[in-house]
């Protein structure tokens, strides 16, 4: 089972995504801020991160930078209500940029696509 970490400061978004991806067969962790996300990752690495950009007190793009240096092989999808960050070159490090919409199909498809490409993103080592 692939594991996903969802980072968003909106509790209902977290709840929605958790349920949607659980139904998609993923193991889902959620974090309302960067600090919690770091703690989650420390506790258990994941296969993919869905990251909001405008977090309460944090900036998702800074965290993206950290993730891509600390875990370069872990895919990250930026998921924001704003589309303007597409033109911010900091966002280009992400594997995908999906603007939030009630139609979750594009997000689901992108998650599936990124998790299924094993050659590009090798499976994490099995937990000992």
């Amino acid at each position: 089972m692939k594991s996903i970490l969802i980072i968003d400061d909106e509790a209902h978004i977290l709840q929605l995504y958790k349920e949607v991806f659980r139904r998609e067969g993923c193991q889902v962790s959620i974090a309302p801020d960067i600090e919690s996300a770091l703690a989650q990752l420390e506790k258990e690495p994941c296969d993919l991160v869905i990251l909001d950009i405008e977090l309460d007190e944090d900036n998702g793009l800074n965290f993206l930078k950290y993730l891509k240096s600390a875990r370069p092989n872990m895919p990250v999808i930026l998921n924001s209500a704003y589309s303007i960050y597409k033109s911010d070159f900091h966002s280009w490090a992400a594997d995908a940029y999906i603007v939030k919409t009630s139609d979750l199909e594009p997000l689901k498809l992108k998650v599936k696509e990124l998790l299924d490409v094993d050659s590009k993103y090798p499976q994490k080592p099995a937990a000992k």
Partner: peptide, 12 residues
Amino acid sequence: RNPLTVIGGFAN
């Protein structure tokens, strides 16, 4: 946008 995503998402 966030509430609409939540409303539409849960409806779906």
